[in-house]
């Protein structure tokens, strides 16, 4: 059972080797003549007057939180979907209740304007 993951491990190692080579090449190949103006962040030719890391819209944070909630839901769906034929009506109703709770949450977020972006 676990044996079927060994090729995956080999694959990961080979990919990592390839990427290491690519990153190394990116430093080895090509000239390296840095000077101050070149190393400045590119902001359409204007010299940056403030740091780039500044306060962000809270909406991104909200979206991330909502994602956690609904993506965990999606993860629950997978094993359930595979076994639905065995679980029959019992499984369907159980999942229906679970989904109902989440849909109520989605409706609440929707009504509160949590999904608005303007």
């Amino acid at each position: 059972m676990l044996e079927s993951y060994v090729p995956l491990l080999i694959f990961v190692l080979i990919v990592l080797g390839l990427l290491g080579a690519l990153v190394t090449l990116s430093f080895v190949l090509g000239p390296s003549k840095p000077y101050k103006a070149k190393l400045n962040p590119y902001e359409s030719g204007i010299v940056p007057d403030s740091p780039a890391h500044r306060r962000m819209s809270v909406r991104f944070y909200l979206t991330a939180m909502l994602f956690i909630i609904f993506d965990v839901e999606a993860v629950f769906f997978y094993p359930w979907a595979v076994l639905l034929r065995q679980l029959k009506w019992f499984g369907l109703i159980e999942m229906g209740v679970f989904m109902g709770i989440l849909l109520v949450a989605l409706a609440h977020i929707w009504r509160k304007g949590g999904l608005e972006w303007d």
């Binding site: 962040p41 590119y42 902001e43 940056p48 740091p51 780039a52 890391h53 500044r54 962000m56 909406r59 991104f60 979206t63 991330a64 994602f67 609904f70 993506d71 999606a74 993860v75 769906f77």
Partner: peptide, 26 residues
């Protein structure tokens, strides 16, 4: 990248990717 464009693009993209990932999964 320490660049305002990069940071905005990165954040936007993160929000976009995670939003559509749920639809993709479901």
């Amino acid at each position: 990248s320490n660049n305002k464009y990069s940071l905005l693009g990165g954040l936007r993209s993160a929000a976009q990717l995670i939003s559509y990932e749920m639809a993709l999964g479901l």
